Computed example of a mutant assay.
Amino acid sequence: MQETLFCLRVGRLPPCSMSDSNATHFTNPSTFILLGVPGWESAHVWISIPFCTMYTIAVLGNFTILFVVKREMSLHGPMYYFLCMLAVSDLILSTSIVPKTLSIFWFNSREIDFNACLTQMYFIHTFLSIESGILGAMALDRYVAICDPLRHSTILTDPMVAKIGLAVIGRCTVLVLPTPFLARQWPYCRTNIITHTHCEHMAVVKLACADTRISNYYGLSVVFLVTGVDAIIITVSYTQILRAIFSLPTKETQLKTFGTCGSHLCVILVFYIPGLFSFLTHRLGHNLALHFEVLIANVYLLVPPMLNPIIYGVRTRQIRERLLTLFTQKGA
């Protein structure tokens, strides 16, 4: 076991990381062992501080968004419905990861049941995909609101918003569903140690001692079919939005409109840039330190749920005003 852990900390798991006499053979292990941040075990308590802080802000911020939108009838519109969908997705995504990660950091509770690991994998990748779809839907909403404002209320009606939301959820749940089933069928005869804080798809599949190209190719296909399509929708929408902004008559109007869209662009960039980096390091970054790869993957998953309610709460005037009204009423 010490030899295995040494290999895991130095780099990727080699084909003969354990001697034949110590090899463990199991088709489906009863549990996996999550290492946390490999090589930084002594600093786990310190690493837990930003993790816990980000999760607390994400939970409080997203629940605040849901509370304010539900309470204020004037916020019952397409943009805020999509924002609520994003908040729910953020809450489920972060809750799928952080409690188990903190139990590793605080209590050294590294074991996770095999089926629980696959379930966590499914929830992580499903709600990442849903978040991508919702950002695409929000980009379309901004495109219609800015480029065709007179038809915004007739195009994006409540039933249409509901249909878009259901389409995003249905697409992601169905496309990601084969992922855990494919991972379940592989024989895990090398080790059950996952060099990660959570059951990320590629981190689990790499442990299989079989030809896992089907899982790899299917994972890539889902990324391109979901994130790739959403990225195209967002790029086209914001290209048209920027063209419309720069054609506005006055600088003041341009700056005001760009300020509204700027917060949306910040959310999108915070989500996609670390995600792209994490995706590339998993497949191409073989010379990167393992702890760095794990930390980047966690940034990708935890920072957007924390920043989304902050950016929308601070930058969206209607939500900011409703929050101030609620606090002043309670203070009175």
Rank of each mutant, 00 (worst) to 15 (best):
F127C: 04
K256Q: 05
A167D: 07
L166G: 00
I49S: 01
I232L: 05
Y312R: 10
Y272W: 12
L35C: 01
D211M: 07
P249L: 10
P309T: 03
V176S: 03
P149R: 02
E111G: 08
M54L: 15
F127K: 00
K256C: 08
C189H: 04
S237F: 01
L225S: 07
T260C: 01
D158N: 10
W46H: 03
F181L: 04
T195Q: 15
N62M: 00
C172D: 03
W106L: 14
C199T: 09
L182W: 01
V205T: 15
N115T: 08
C199L: 02
T119G: 11
M1V: 14
S89E: 14
I319H: 06
P249I: 01
D20R: 14
P29R: 04
K100C: 01
L128H: 01
E252W: 01
I214W: 14
S278A: 15
V267H: 00
R12G: 15
C261P: 10
F279A: 05
S42N: 09
L302I: 01
I232T: 10
Y272A: 08
Y81P: 00
R317C: 03
T95Q: 09
L280S: 01
V176D: 03
R110W: 07
C16F: 14
T250F: 05
T239H: 01
R142W: 05
I130A: 02
C52Q: 11
K206F: 08
S103E: 06
N28Q: 13
F181K: 08
I92Q: 06
K70E: 04
R71H: 12
T119S: 13
V204S: 09
Y300V: 06
T173C: 09
V59P: 03
L135C: 15
V294L: 04
C7M: 15
I57W: 15
L102S: 01
M85S: 15
S48P: 00
G77N: 05
I232V: 05
S132V: 07
L242S: 07
H286S: 13
D90L: 00
L5E: 12
M18T: 15
L182M: 12
M160C: 12
V229D: 04
M138Q: 05
T212L: 06
Y188L: 11
M138H: 00
L8W: 00
I124K: 06
L177T: 09
Q120L: 08
F181C: 03
S132T: 10
N298V: 02
P178T: 08
T325V: 07
P274G: 00
A208S: 10
R190P: 05
L177E: 04
F51Y: 06
S237H: 00
P309D: 13
T179R: 13
T239M: 05
I104F: 04
V68W: 03
V229P: 00
H152C: 05
L248A: 09
F277T: 13
Y312D: 00
W186Q: 12
D20F: 14
Y188E: 02
I214L: 15
V37R: 02
G61V: 12
